[in-house]
Design a binder for these strands. Structure first.
Lengths: 331, 331
DNA sequence: ATGAAAGCGCTAACAT
DNA sequence: ATGTTAGCGCTTTCAT
């Protein structure tokens, strides 16, 4: 592979001069600069990242921690981030993690092996020592879609959003409202909390038998959980699915049983992933400002890394109830 | 950050010995080995990847080139690959590329800056010099879902699969079959070829007015293209969408116009992404063995890298027509 | 304005 | 079995 020495030798100069040109430093003869630039172009030379990372003690790389089984919401999110990060001049390195301790440990190890400039977390790690490590090495971190300690976080008010979703159902006359949720993450707990509080506000009694937890927030788990819910009781007129993907699975299970959405059962989701507006019926849901979350997260991290840290980095963005076709007045 | 020297010093030994322990080399006193292992564990030491990459002249990292706007099929594909690659001990580095020349150039530059062990391409690069570079530096490469030159490739017989899809429609009595496809990639051309040949075989005249190309194979482009198609003419009873996502967009556009699927128009997709079996109606489609493609690609690359290159790496895997609810007999 | 030299963290060849 | 040393490709003092 072609190195800085090769370029230097061919140009009849020292590696130091070539390095100066590459990094746009001053103190280099304009003519020589031109000559070197031309040579680099011709030879297609690109500096070795590992070597640069070694001496600089940084990598211009930002890590993104995301569930291996990332859903479409998270997918849209990281696409935005990757793009924005690129515009700031960072490379992006993904850390896919599963829902178990070993996977978190492995992620931590990989983290240590890199000289990351910063880290974005779209996935909530369980192990406290993970966060302790980040703290210890003072790695710039921004969290998206949840909170932890006093790490800067970009998110919406999950609880109030869920509250509003349920209120929409209540306003439609529904009183028998079930909840289908997923694994144990804070957004799940908050959405459940909003569900319960909205019930309270409407004077509807809390009933744990109306609540079911799938293992994860996916279509696959959604359909299975919904089948189980139907086995327990069909006495409900509305369903709040904690994510759109869960809603998609639920609608499929409902339809299979000849239960029509929204005629027989209203379904409301959460996230407003792209496909929700393509479904038949279109899904009523809570819109998360995905683009904005991604942008703000990338920006907050960049600010932290470059030290222009004056502004408070925590942001609670606004959500929106999107009423489409999957919810209707109760019969 | 803690380094190998720190560990060595604390253990009262040389870095070389520690290195031997880390890399499981022979010739190190079992007692010392234990002691060092314990110390490494305690201190949470992990070797710096850049440093190792420098001296080894390799990174244990495999690159995956994928469209920034990767669809769900590609998403499922790379998840499988990432997992399998991990089991072989490789890290995975993603290269997201857009559909323009600058993006390809940037990708090439990033590629040069890394000491990748190998490369997987899920996205078809246009620039010949990209492939020339890979050839020049003898980087192990495996392509998934398309072909180029004599680079090992894992894929299905796209043309025959499309042929079979259309034949299914023909068997249902359809004669007015439209094609909705996307941008200029080889799989698109092959699927179109299969479409035309099946028409020929059925004695149906080829008619370019039945064919429309969206800019990309997504739901968003699918819905718009379908609207345009409907504007041109409503005289068709079946639609072949070149990807499931295009089909989803098309079904939405059809439904919006009061055209029922499959009663008025049968729709068949291609890929069999996860959601296709959750839609209402469930989508008839061509199943690509996503898991197998991913596995085989990772395996083929691993074989190439580790030099056990005896087997021919090219594989044509088998597809399957999945008949579900979006296609029906013509009225 | 330029070059020589040191050093980032690691591994491997070479001594011992 | 273990330590010493050189060197991977780069940037950055420090001389000049």
């Amino acid at each position: 592979m072609i190195s800085i020495k090769d370029i230097a030798k061919e140009a009849g100069m020292s590696p130091a001069t070539v390095s100066r040109v590459i990094n746009g430093k001053k103190y280099v003869n304009p003519q020589r600069r031109e000559q070197i630039l031309k040579l680099i172009e011709e030879r297609g030379y690109v500096p070795n990242k590992a070597a640069r990372s070694m001496v600089l003690q940084r990598s211009y790389t930002v890590g993104i921690i995301i569930p291996s089984a990332f859903n479409m919401f998270q997918r849209q999110l990281f696409s935005v981030m990757e793009k924005r990060l690129g515009s700031f001049g960072y490379y992006t390195l993904f850390f896919f993690v599963n829902f178990n301790a070993e996977s978190e440990d492995e992620c931590l190890n990989r983290l240590k092996a890199e000289k990351l400039d910063g880290l974005i977390m779209i996935h909530e790690m369980k192990k406290p020592y993970f966060y302790e490590y980040l703290e210890k090495v003072k790695l710039p971190v921004v969290i998206a879609t949840f909170c932890y300690g006093n790490i800067p976080a970009i998110h919406i008010d999950e609880e109030n959003a869920a509250f509003e979703a349920i209120s929409h159902l209540v306003n439609l006359g529904h009183r028998k409202i079930n909840l289908l949720s997923g694994g144990d993450f804070s957004f799940g707990r908050q959405r459940m909390e909003g569900y319960y509080k909205a019930l309270d506000a409407a004077g509807i009694e809390r009933d744990e038998r109306r609540v079911l937890f799938a293992r994860w927030y996916s279509m696959e788990y959604g359909i299975n959980a919904m089948r189980e819910m139907l086995l327990r009781s069909r006495d409900f007129t509305a369903l709040f699915a904690a994510t759109d993907e869960l809603a998609i699975g639920a609608i499929r299970a409902l339809t299979d049983e000849g239960i029509q959405v929204p005629e027989d059962v209203s379904v409301i989701g959460f996230d407003d992933i792209e496909i929700s507006n393509f479904l038949v019926p279109r899904l009523t849901t809570i819109h998360q400002p995905i683009g904005e979350i991604g942008e703000e997260t990338a920006l907050a991290l960049h600010r932290q890394i470059s030290g222009s840290n004056s502004v408070k980095q925590d942001r609670t963005l606004s959500y929106q109830l999107i009423i489409r076709e999957s919810t209707a007045k109760v019969n």
